[in-house]
Write a protein that binds this DNA or RNA. Structure first.
Lengths: 119, 119
DNA sequence: TTGACATATGCCGATATTGGTATATATTGG
DNA sequence: CCAATATATACCAATATCGGCATATGTCAA
């Protein structure tokens, strides 16, 4: 009876802006933690915690090299989000999907028409 | 210092599965609250609360008709989500698009090379 | 007006989060 | 072995959620 865990979903994990920032950094290639820390200007423990969430949801993988741990993006689990929003793409793309747009379009036609249907 | 409000973002609003379900229902056209209630089998107050969040984030609009309130989808504010995930589309679509993948692939080839450890 | 219907709101308990500070756990170099 | 570096974890305070139940608000119909 509380909010779903951040680790429940890619949806929940990605709702946190800093986690999105981290993924954005990783989209440029794998990075050790401290790279992310300095690039984003966040406290190191905070970054580690966010990375933990991202790993639990399977959005990042790790590779240990000596005392460094490289994190790399694994975008597979972003696909459900993409698939879900993609279904709504038309709602901001299409022109004749909503009454407002239709009316606006009719107005444009009247304006430029010249066929006498003036107001 | 707590989790961001669900009303802060489309990202946060949509992290809740039932709110996604509601939007899915509304994608078929505007509906009064009770339609959503019976279609999803949720408690009416719960649906009203979720709709409130969705309206505060600007994902739905309302139209009052008598004692009914029709909710309709307004997908504009989903675009930021779409734009963000779209940038990661390649990460589950393409195979040789990023250096990491190339390197990983090279490593696999090495591993399976003479040692007999195949995949 | 009264009652039925549609929707919204208030209060509650339980929970999990975020960020901070401090500290623990490796791992490397000398 | 010791110190330094890299990362992870524990504990804390503050907060806001979600869902349930009861109830308020608003509107129609007779």
């Amino acid at each position: 009876m509380a909010r779903a865990a951040t680790t429940a979903d890619a949806f929940n994990a990605v709702a946190e802006p800093r986690r999105r920032q981290i993924l954005d950094v990783l989209s440029g290639g794998e990075r050790p933690v401290n790279d992310i820390v300095s690039e984003l200007g966040l406290a190191q423990p905070l970054v580690s915690k966010h990375l933990r969430v991202l790993r639990q949801v399977g959005l990042v993988d790790t590779r240990d090299v000596g005392r460094q741990r490289f994190y790399r993006l694994d975008g597979h689990n972003l696909k459900p989000i993409h698939d879900w929003v993609k279904a709504y793409e038309q709602s901001w793309t299409q022109r004749f999907d909503r009454l407002d747009d239709v009316l606006e379009d009719l107005k444009k036609m009247e304006d430029g028409d010249g066929s006498g249907k003036q107001r």
